[in-house]
Amino acid sequence: MTLFGYRVPMMASLLVWCLIWEIIGRAHLVFLLPPLSEVLAAAVHLVQTASWQNATITTLRAFVMGMALSILFGVPLGILMGRVKIADDLLGMWVNIFSSAPLSALVPVLMILFGFGERTIVAAVFLFAIWIIVLDTRAGVRHISPSLVEMARSYGASRRALYTKVILLAALPEILAGIRLGLIRGVKGVVIGQLLVAIVGYGALFETFSRNFRMAEFWALTIILFAFALLVAQLIEQAEAKVEYYAGAR
């Protein structure tokens, strides 16, 4: 895989940064930055605690629910906007606005609408992730060559078959790209939501660690979170690579 040729140097330079981190930590240059080895030890310890496990389950559940909702609503909305001009004209502006708006400002609204709990986090993930999914799906549907749709019609495809067998599949590469970007935004949504609500999941843990200056654990949690975000992006990228072969053939 050509990917490998790139990964090796990338990893190597991150190791250099880890080394620098360790040296700075050991030298006590920055009070808030303990050595990496200490952080890793804290991470090993942290994942064994019940509070982390509960927080992870809560966070993951909220993330998965929010993402599922945003895909469930985002993809059909994107297809609608890609196929129906009037829907695109009326909704396009708002989807564009929300895809680049500072949605973190809306989290307080979610908090009063959905309460200080998991539902707010689910809503935050949904709100962060859906717009880019809509936009990319719309772009994917728009890029389908008209002759492909005409071909399906001329062979007598029903409306249902046209959408499920031709349009959805032809737009799949863009839809997956949108979902990948949506996942990255969703992770940001879950973290921002939890930081602001501050009594659920990782937000609560961050709050505890930083209030009590337990820096090793704070950093350990950050690393776990970052690793999760990168892992999610990587997994979707592999799925994308699988549909790439016919994306390239178009």
Binding site: I184, V191, F206, A229, L230
Partner: peptide, 11 residues
């Protein structure tokens, strides 16, 4: 860019 750097803001 991929990670939720918002976690750094309290820091």
């Amino acid at each position: 860019q991929a990670a939720p750097v918002a976690a750094f803001i309290p820091m």
